[in-house]
Design a protein around this nucleic acid. Structure first.
Lengths: 206, 206
DNA sequence: CTTCTTGATGTCAGCTTCTGTCATGGCAGT
DNA sequence: ACTGCCATGACAGAAGCTGACATCAAGAAG
């Protein structure tokens, strides 16, 4: 018989799993860190050794995403223009995300982000950190400022919008395709394309 | 003699002033809400009646900024293309900000935002809310999605970058000019301009 | 003038998040 | 067997934030 290890393995993973379960069962705000830790067979104190705060338990994937994107920018053809390099990197990262992550998890997490501004704040700062990393990657390729920052920021914007349209979309289209579409729309907008005539939305009554 | 009013006027303003003073004197983290309230001649509980949380005391101006920008988009010439309308609105708002706000305050606040990720998070969600408002304003003018969102997001990106370059700049140039420059750079980048050859930054040693 | 209502503030108890500090006890290397 | 390591636990406490109720001057209503 295997000797009992002193501790169950993968404390971090157990905490993440327990957290998502409880957030889905009771909602984010009505789940305390103590409950998460207990379900994972640990204590509150240990939770805070793995995660800087309660929200952080939802963001274990963000380092991978950043690394994947930065790496792809580093490997882009030497004289590709910044927008193309960034667009291709985000598109590929989108495809990877779609492949690797459970769709149920991605949806549940998206609901949490949209429903709780506390979590949205964290999401936004992760995206800002991603933009900063992309900026550095572009600078390393010789792109000057402010072009590097602008390409990075617009890349993130395109990713956000593509992701949102993908996850809320009725037909299960490809995330990468949504991102590509957003890039193309951005180019058209930035080129000063005339506003297509469309029925204006009714103004809200103040 | 004037009868003493029961309460000193402008509790909110006193709280904001006390907060900025203490943040400059001791730093953000080492200032408690109780200290802020006491300096303003109030109690902690009253602070939380005026501000949803400790960070919010630094963001009284954000509603004005949003309103100013949305209004200007609403008043742009009827068939202006989205990017131009957005760019003009942000440029004008930048000029207004520069006119109306004390430079010392703007700088001190900028330092706080860059130094404390907690505050940066709040700043970013305010900018996201601004982008959402700009999107709605464009939609009301008949701009379709995703063009409206993209124009709004890039507008915010341009504002951020213009602001940053203005506030950290050596020569006290115009904020509006920085924003205008960022818009132009963005157009060039989005048009797929060739990377200008520039000395690449040294890579960080991992 | 008296009474009533209102609204900004105070008081207090309590929860949750997050941190510092020290204790515990298997496990690995010697 | 000894020893140091290190993931975890235990505990106390600060700070942020909330709900409930009390206070009390300033008008409004009568």
């Amino acid at each position: 018989m295997e000797a009992m290890a002193r501790w169950q393995p993968d404390a971090r993973g157990r905490l993440e799993k327990a957290a998502m379960e409880l957030f889905e069962e009771r909602g984010y705000e009505r789940t305390t860190v103590e409950e998460i830790a207990t379900r994972a067979g640990l204590t509150e104190r240990t939770f805070f050794r793995y995660f800087a705060d309660k929200r952080e338990v939802l963001f274990s994937g963000s380092k991978d995403l950043e690394k994947s994107i930065v790496d792809r920018i580093g490997r882009a053809p030497p004289r590709a223009n910044p927008i193309e390099a960034v667009a291709a990197a985000f598109e590929a990262a989108g495809a990877a995300l779609q492949d690797r992550r459970d769709l149920h998890f991605v949806r549940a997490r998206y609901v949490l982000v949209t429903k709780h501004s506390e979590i949205l704040e964290r999401e936004l700062i992760k995206l800002a950190s991603l933009a900063a990393a992309v900026t550095r990657a572009l600078r390393a390729r010789g792109v000057s400022e402010p072009a590097a920052s602008l390409a990075a920021e617009t890349g993130v914007a395109v990713f956000k919008i593509g992701f949102e349209r993908w996850i809320t979309g009725k037909k299960p289209q490809d995330l990468a395709a949504h991102i590509r579409a957003a890039v193309n729309a951005l180019k058209a907008v930035a080129a000063g394309e005339k506003t297509p005539r469309v029925t204006p939305k009714r103004k809200r009554t103040a």
